[in-house]
Amino acid sequence: MAQVWLITGSSRGLGRSLAEAVLRAGHKLVATARNPSQLSGLAERYGDQVRLFELDVTDPAAADAAVKRAVDTFGRLDVLVNNAGYGNVNAIEDTSIEEFRAQIETNLFGVINVTKAAIPVMREQKSGHIIQFSSVGGRIGALGRAPYSAAKWGVEGFSEVLAKEIGPMGVKVTIVEPGGFRTDFAGASTTIQNGRPEYDATVGVVARFQRNYDGKQPGDPVKAADAVLHITSLDEPPLRLLLGSDAMNAVEKNDIAKIEADRKWRELSISTDFDASA
Rank of each mutant, 00 (worst) to 15 (best):
A2R: 13
W5P: 06
L6T: 07
L6D: 04
G9S: 05
G13D: 03
S17W: 12
G26R: 01
A33T: 07
S40E: 08
G41I: 10
R45K: 15
G47S: 04
T58H: 11
A65W: 12
A70Y: 11
V71K: 10
F74N: 06
L80G: 12
L80Y: 09
N88E: 07
N88Y: 14
A91D: 02
E99F: 08
F100C: 14
I104E: 11
T106V: 15
T106M: 08
I119N: 00
M122E: 07
R123A: 03
Q132R: 05
S134V: 08
R145V: 08
E156V: 15
G157K: 14
E160A: 13
L162S: 00
M169Y: 08
G170I: 08
V171E: 02
K172V: 01
K172D: 01
K172L: 06
G180Y: 15
R182M: 03
A186P: 06
G187I: 01
A188P: 03
S189E: 06
I192M: 02
D200F: 01
G204C: 02
A207M: 06
R208D: 00
R211Q: 05
R211F: 00
D214Q: 13
Q217S: 10
D220A: 04
P221G: 07
P221I: 06
K223M: 04
A224P: 00
D226I: 12
A227Y: 05
H230P: 00
I231Y: 02
T232V: 14
L234R: 10
P237A: 07
S245R: 12
A247G: 12
V251W: 10
N254R: 10
D255N: 14
A257C: 05
W265G: 02
E267F: 14
S269E: 14
F274P: 09
D275E: 14
A278V: 15
